[in-house]
Design a protein around this nucleic acid. Structure first.
Lengths: 252, 252
DNA sequence: TCTAAACAAACTGCATGCAGTATTGGCTGG
DNA sequence: CCAGCCAATACTGCATGCAGTTTGTTTAGA
């Protein structure tokens, strides 16, 4: 599927453009597009030819993907693609609600600087300006939406909480971008958009007024919208297949 | 500190006893005992002599410890020991409260089998039988306490939640064993023990009665005991140094 | 025909060599 | 005496060879 082009840049550089990082990206892509199914063993050697890198960066990439949760170690060595179930998706959303609820509460308790609040308001203002997303503006909406949620986490001023959320978002289904391929045309989705933005405004209000408990329960309920969104997708019989990583979801 | 003994077993076996796993354990030990301080760069080559393994397993071990959060990548390559602050400790406990609170609520909502409840009750029964821990019985108490908490997570039936908690517990300070070296003699700690067990019983009660919200808030408050416990330790001026990983905590 | 054992292929874990870059120490000039 | 530059050292990322084990297939026997 991806074109096999030999890498001409022979940078032995360390960080941004390392072979390992590229391999992580390409492998994750391969897994999420369904190239490898749940339970499939991922062998290093066959991949060397396919990705044009040696076994060393492949091994490191596999290690990272295993820590992300996409792979799991195989008893006699190596890794296999992990199987997900719908329950994992629902539970992931549940945990997301817990953590983002906590973030909203901490934000309400901890903000000190009016400018921080202003940043949060502006993030929401950008979404308001964009209006109800169309097929074209949907990617922009997703980015602005991410920014809004990230802004709340920033206000919470908790590295530990941020890290827990980052780890959770490394799963394909709980990440905020999990809805990338959704059909925004469905009017059920349009309704969810209205509710979602109402939530955002009330969350801001609660944070500003230092209503921690209210902010928490609002954010927690807000996460449940992801669930309804996902359920709408599932109505479409085979659209699960079109989601990134949808092929990893099997029946328990 | 640790005796340097050459490993005679030349097993190339894969899983349980691999060089990499041993290296992870030894490196974690070295970091938590303060052999390396925050910000120190961990170089592979010097460690080969010290641990009697080649660079390959060391590199993999460093990668894993970085994912755990003990190390962080250094811009030009390699890893440095991460610095923790007291705020990280408090926030870690906060997140623990969020997640264990969620687990208790899910447990109350989801348990189906009376035998599962019986396992939970028996776990608590073992603690009750042990009674207030002495210096001798403290390790046993810690293990039983862990089992009780793990039992609740089991009842929650959520792999995603369990994984989030596992990740959190990989930090030295938020883990349930963070109190291993505490002085159980202090009568403040004895008081905390009484309160803690009261919490346990009320949590069981709430779970049995399907009082999800009550179970959640009880478990969340229960986590705050860790904070008070830690604060008691901090009263003792230098006892922070004696905690595993205590040397990693610096002022922000 | 089915089972079991033996053989062969493949794969993982580990060690090590190599090239390129960052870092550190010394040296020189102001 | 201090600052800046240069060289030597050290270290990281990557490739690859090797040994031991797992795994799949084939063949022999019941």
């Amino acid at each position: 599927m991806a074109t096999e082009e030999s890498v001409s840049a022979v940078s032995t550089s360390t960080d941004a453009d390392s072979q390992t990082r590229r391999t992580v990206l390409r492998l994750r892509e391969l897994i999420l597009t369904g190239e490898f199914g749940p339970g499939d063993r991922i062998s290093e050697q066959p991949l060397t030819g396919r990705l044009n890198v040696s076994r060393t960066p492949i091994r490191l990439a596999l290690e990272r993907l295993a820590h992300e949760g996409l792979l799991e170690p195989y008893p006699t060595g190596g890794f296999v693609v992990r199987k997900f179930t719908l329950n994992d998706v629902w539970d992931g959303i549940e945990v997301r609600g817990l953590l983002e609820g906590g973030a909203a509460r901490l934000a309400a308790e901890r903000w000190t600087n009016d400018r921080d609040l202003e940043r949060l308001r502006r993030a929401q203002g950008n979404i308001d300006t964009l209006g109800e997303p169309t097929a074209d503006s949907f990617p922009a909406f997703l980015e602005l939406n991410d920014i809004f949620h990230a802004e709340i986490v920033k206000l919470a001023k908790s590295d530990m909480l941020r890290q827990s959320l980052d780890k959770l978002f490394s799963f394909p289904f709980t990440s905020p971008q999990a809805l990338v391929t959704l059909h925004p045309k469905l009017h059920e989705a349009a309704h969810l958009f209205v509710i979602s933005q109402e939530h955002h405004h009330r969350i801001i209000e609660a944070i500003v007024k230092r209503q921690g408990a209210r902010a928490e329960s609002l954010a927690r309920e807000h996460a449940q919208l992801s669930r309804r969104n996902f359920e709408i997708v599932l109505m479409d019989t085979d659209s699960l297949r079109s989601l990134p990583g949808g092929s990893l979801i099997r029946q328990p």
